[in-house]
Design a protein around this nucleic acid. Structure first.
Length: 1100
RNA sequence: UGCGGCCUAGCUCAGUUGGCUAGAGCACGCCCUUGAUAAGGGCGGGGUCGUGGGUUCGAGUCCCACGGCCGCAACCA
């Protein structure tokens, strides 16, 4: 067999962005993404829903975060053999789109849009929705978020909208759609309600409003307590209420009290009898009032009072006291004026008690004509006049001003009014219990969202305000008769139904405004059926995507059956009340089941300094900058490992760079190291027999080498733990342990095994090969590029060669990474490969624990050396170790060679109590003794400390159970209940930690010193070889100038030096006799213990 | 103001069912065993675990209260 390189050369340094571009090319060429779906068809299905982004804004780093978390589980599941259909989607409707277009056109407000023309306006909206789509596509590909954008659902398409109509029709038939009032922040100047998002832009502190205390006159004979108090029936009594919006008083229909709040009935200095909250009386009332009676708020409920105004006829019962849980005694009087048209709390109370909604204000924020004294006056301007009017009737107790935070219009700076607007609702509150119940079937990550933020939200569910008086959105498919006074309505659930109504085919109909608005038909009551003006809240679009993305139920019934519930969704935490809620609500109302089984919700991205990222601060990180600097893998890895998924995470280019240095480079160097030595060696990948007897070489290898066994044990533990974490949607658990493993692979396994690789030891090469291939598989979902790169070189290159040589016979690789998988059937991408299986037989927990101890002891040994200022190059005679127990000592004896090599010492010994080298103390374990004797533990500890420690230790070490007497009680303390701690006395340099003690001898004899010199010499020669650019296998002649010092060293260690440095000859030169190193050779001079030594090497 | 989350070394974070001397990375300081890696490796200093109570033999961990930061909902009479 001709010797060719098994693997492509891998340089120790790499440009990740360049490597990733190369991998992207491979994926494109081989159509890997599509095949990752198509090749799994027929397998068990894992359902992922893509929460659709809007493409009319640029993708930012927060999208990269969410998409990294979205991507990882479908990749994992695909490798587990699942078919994961990963359909993309675009959210295309709604106010953000409209606002962008408005800006472009320079329009402000709805009147201007309508003047411009809804058809033209919506056409521009449609164009605008995909404005940045190419940027989204590029970002999606570059970060390796595998989602199928070619087949993405688009919410503005007729098929999508038709499904939405179907859903609404279902709701309609269940009587879940209704019209009601909604309190919205309303800009009277712009004539439009503001969304909560817009609202948040305009809060101002320090707004000054009136503060007025109004007397509401109690009706005669009302209220139990009033009768009891025995007043004269002629006497006038009042309830004292407070408001900062006098203009809402004409809309008053009730007064609210806190049921458990204490109220007082007082005689004011003016002689009036007033009722208000007890706690506030001092603050509000003029001094000198007399308390007549105390009562609870609940005692007041039901008392009627005289309406302040009677501008509108009211038929139902109103103007009485109600209970409201929002009533506080922070401000005001503890009695809250209720005007359902002008406040959310008010509206809710109004609904509860069936109170009228008196809308006194028109769309421009002016009093309507019925409000005769102030008709046509802007409400805020009417405040003073209203106060005067009340004062003139003696109903104003007092007035002042009040400073608070208040919202203003972000566009025109007008103070906003909270006003009732009639709109359409989905009666979600009727399903509140089901919403809560179905939520219990969902696994939330992090878990606290389930019954925290999300659960609370569901428990306080209010009806979903569906209607929007806008343009670019799904039209609500309700048509209403325009006959005067008619309330006849029909809900249309499909295009076919609509065609039937209008009596013609509706080909090419765009299911948007204004076209659907133009469709009318005769109403049974003589009028014409016209569509209502409202369109849908955009959140209804995305919340309905499980149904609508398949144009269900109009087609795709089979797909729907498979895809009707997501196994996994993932969006940032702000979607709790967004997409998560709307998905859940639509699914529960329609099907009484959750739309998704598992949901992961990452926290937000913060800037490097922990502040919020915002355009205004200019601290927004551009994803492309990170990708171009460090690559997508590093970015993804940082997202996964930086903090638990639910937490917010700081982000910057630098922080990602740290990931590269710490993790990716370590992995890459190990990979590079392997390839270098695998190619140098005669080792050929063991691929075992073909056919039925095929066994993994690794399982047959039974390498006797402890390090091989150890690293394979660690590897299989890793496979086990990472797999478990993936199954638990535990991203940190699926990623951080890999970094830990790679660290110990590189800095323990490889470092200690270097010589075996140099020697081309097949067991070592085979072991490291299996480890790297397996790690690549484990990393594939998280860092798809570097995993692919390793796979292409380690598996695919080999597989191609193997196919050529073996003519396509099936030959297995290793059951560690893929059972029954042969090279010739190796998929041509790691992302089409199968997830590694754990080989439990290779897990040796004892060995793992023992090796951890070896590492700890070694680390302590280094510390001990450091304490004595003994560099590692200097061999030492002895290391003395104390372990925590006999088992550990035995284990350490078995593994002592690692410690000796690492610490460069000649021998290891163990110390115990009783030795004259050490002081002894006996430490009673709290865990064991605490469990046995509870509060006796401190007494035992105290008593034991007074005994002779050496004697006590000796008895325990002899296996004796010692009876300790403390405060009259006797406690049996067994050897396993205590730790015997020893401290060396002299002659050693010592380090200790957690019950371990490591001491090194500090005395050096001549042989040790000379060996140290030899090592120094070797190191210098090796460095010289390296600097001179020699090949590893090149032979040299070595010239050493300084005979006096080196003479004896070389006499003893010359063979060692020749061997280590591949010197065929060591030439000793004598500078004092005029010898000189050859000028033309690479050479170096250095100080060795005060002597100058010069070394030169010549290639042989 | 309500709800939720968080508060552990200078910074970023681990810390499992309460149990032995609370760990890592970065930063800092000192150092550098032989061809994988200086974009590396080793060692070290640095913490009254936000504060105060409580439960317990024992609390970073459980309970209560308070404070701070972040988010969400509000900011309303």
């Amino acid at each position: 067999m001709t010797k060719t390189s098994q693997f492509s050369e891998v340089k120790p340094t790499v440009s990740y962005p360049e490597m990733e571009e190369k991998i992207l090319q491979i994926w494109r060429e081989r159509d890997v993404f599509q095949r990752s779906m198509s090749e799994r068809q027929g397998g068990p299905e894992f359902v992922f829903y893509e929460g659709p982004p809007t493409a009319n804004g640029r993708p930012g780093i927060h999208h990269v975060l969410a998409r990294a978390f979205k991507d990882i589980f479908p990749r994992y599941k695909t490798m587990q053999g699942y078919y994961v259909q990963r359909r993309g989607g675009w959210d295309t409707h709604g106010l953000p789109v409209e606002i962008e277009v408005e800006k472009k056109l320079g329009l402000t407000g709805k009147q201007q849009i309508e003047a411009y023309g809804i058809a033209r306006f919506n056409a521009l909206c449609r164009e605008s929705t995909m404005e940045y789509i190419s940027e989204w596509e590029e970002l999606t590909e570059r970060m390796a978020f595998w989602v199928d954008l070619k087949t993405a659902y688009v919410t503005f398409e007729n098929e999508y909208i038709e499904s939405l109509w179907w859903i609404l029709k279902q709701f309609w038939e269940k009587d879940l759609l209704f019209q009601g009032y909604k309190i919205v922040p309303y800009c009277p100047r712009c004539g439009t309600p503001l969304s909560s998002h817009e609202l948040s832009l305009g809060y101002k502190e320090g707004a000054i409003d009136p503060s007025v205390y109004v007397k509401f006159r109690i009706k005669r004979g009302e209220g139990r307590s009033f009768v009891q108090s025995g007043r004269s029936p002629e006497e006038v009594e009042y309830l004292l209420a407070w408001t900062t919006t006098p203009w809402t008083l004409p809309g008053n229909v009730a007064l609210a009290v806190g049921a458990d709040v204490e109220y007082v009935r007082v005689r004011d200095v003016s002689g009036d009898v007033l009722t208000m909250a007890a706690d506030l009386a001092e603050r509000v009332l003029r001094p000198g009032f007399e308390v007549l009676e105390r009562m609870k708020g609940s005692d007041l409920v039901g008392i009627h009072y005289e309406p302040l105004y009677r501008f509108y006829p009211v038929e139902q019962d109103y103007c009485y006291v109600v209970a409201g849980d929002f009533v506080s005694t922070e401000d005001g009087t503890g009695i809250v004026h209720i005007a359902p048209a002008f406040g959310a709390d008010d509206m809710e109370v109004g609904k509860k008690y069936g109170l009228p909604v008196i809308l006194t204000v028109d769309a421009a924020g002016k009093f309507r004509s019925e409000v005769t004294p102030w008709a046509g006056v802007f409400v805020k301007d009417a405040d003073p006049a209203i106060q005067e009017e009340l004062a003139s009737r003696g109903l104003l107790y007092k007035a002042g001003t009040y400073e608070h935070t208040y919202p203003f219009c972000w566009r025109c700076d007008s103070p906003l009014l909270y006003m009732a607007r009639e709109t359409w609702y989905i009666r979600t509150s009727a399903y509140r219990d089901r919403l809560v119940a179905t939520n219990q079937q969902i696994n939330w990550y992090p878990e606290h969202i389930k019954n925290g933020r999300f659960g609370n939200w569901l428990e306080n569910n209010v009806d979903w305000a569906l209607g929007r008086e806008r343009y670019w959105a799904t039209p609500i498919p309700i048509w209403k008769s325009d006959a005067p006074g008619s309330a006849y309505m029909e809900c249309i659930g499909s295009i076919a139904e609509l065609e039937e109504k209008v009596g013609r085919k509706l080909e090419d109909l765009d299911l948007h405004r204004p076209y659907v608005d133009e469709l009318t038909w005769p109403a049974p009551d003589g009028g014409t059926m016209r569509r209502i003006k409202e369109v849908c809240d955009v959140w209804f679009d995305s919340g309905s995507m499980p149904v609508a993305q398949w144009h269900y139920p109009f087609e795709n019934h089979e797909v729907w059956e498979r895809q009707k519930q997501a196994d996994y969704i993932c969006e940032a935490i702000d979607q709790t009340r967004g997409w998560f809620y709307t998905l859940h609500a639509v699914s529960t109302l329609l099907f009484d089941r959750p739309a998704f089984k598992n949901v992961l919700s990452p926290g937000h991205i913060l800037a490097e300094d922990g502040s919020k990222m915002s355009k205004s601060k200019g601290n927004v990180v551009n994803p492309w900058e990170v990708f171009n600097t460090h690559g997508a893998d590093a970015t993804r890895w940082y997202m996964y490992t930086a903090s638990p998924p639910g937490n917010s995470r700081r982000f910057s280019v630098n922080l990602v760079g740290e990931t590269v240095r710490r993790f990716l480079n370590t992995l890459w160097n190990t990979y590079s190291f392997f390839v270098t030595y695998a190619n140098l060696s005669d080792w050929r990948l063991e691929i075992g027999d073909s056919g039925a007897n095929a066994q993994s070489p690794i399982s047959n290898l039974q390498s006797l080498n402890l390090l091989d066994r150890w690293v394979l044990s660690e590897l299989n533990r890793l496979v086990r733990d990472v797999t478990f974490a993936y199954e638990s949607y535990d991203v940190i658990g699926a990623t951080r342990p890999i970094a830990d493993f790679v660290e110990s692979l590189s800095n323990w396994y490889v470092r200690l095994s270097r010589r075996r690789f140099w020697d081309g030891d097949p067991a070592a090469l085979q072991t490291l090969y299996d480890v790297l291939v397996t790690v690549a598989h484990l990393l594939a979902p998280a860092t798809p590029f570097v995993a692919e790169e390793m796979y292409q070189n380690l598996v695919m290159r080999r597989a191609r060669g193997e196919r050529r040589e073996a003519g396509g016979e099936e030959e297995p690789i290793s059951n560690l990474q893929s059972p029954n998988l042969s090279f010739s059937q190796s998929p041509d991408s790691i992302h089409l490969a199968r997830w590694p299986q754990v080989n439990f037989d290779l897990i040796d927990e004892q060995l793992s624990a023992d090796m951890a101890m070896v590492q700890r002891v070694t680390s302590l040994g280094h510390a001990a050396r450091q304490n004595a200022n003994l560099k590692v190059r200097q061999p030492l005679a002895q290391v003395v170790v104390r372990t925590r127990n006999a088992e550990e000592e035995a284990a350490l004896r078995r593994l002592q060679q690692f410690v000796l090599d690492e610490l460069n010492v000649k021998a290891m010994s163990f110390t115990h109590a009783g030795s004259d080298l050490v002081d002894v103390t006996v430490f009673p374990y709290p865990k064991q003794l605490g469990q046995k004797y509870g509060k006796g533990y401190p007494k035992i500890r105290q008593a034991m400390s007074t005994l002779d420690q050496a004697d006590l230790a000796a008895r325990f070490q002899a296996g004796e159970t010692v009876e300790i007497v403390a405060e009259g009680e006797t406690y049996a303390v067994a050897p396993e209940d205590v730790e015997v701690r020893v401290t060396p006395r002299a002659g050693f340099s010592v380090a200790q930690e957690a019950g371990y003690l490591v001491a090194v001898t500090t005395e050096l004899d001549q042989a040790l010193i000379q060996e140290g010199y030899a090592r120094e010499l070797v190191r210098r020669i090796q460095q010289l070889r390296k600097d001179a650019g020699l090949e590893i296998s090149d032979r040299i002649v070595t010239y050493i100038a300084d005979s006096e010092l080196m003479h004896e060293v070389l006499a003893h260690f010359g063979g060692y030096v020749r061997e280590e440095t591949l010197s065929v000859e060591l030439v000793q030169l004598h500078p004092e006799q005029g010898d000189k190193t050859p000028d033309n050779l690479p050479q170096v001079s250095f100080d060795l213990d005060g002597r100058m030594v010069t070394v030169a090497i010549g290639k042989k």
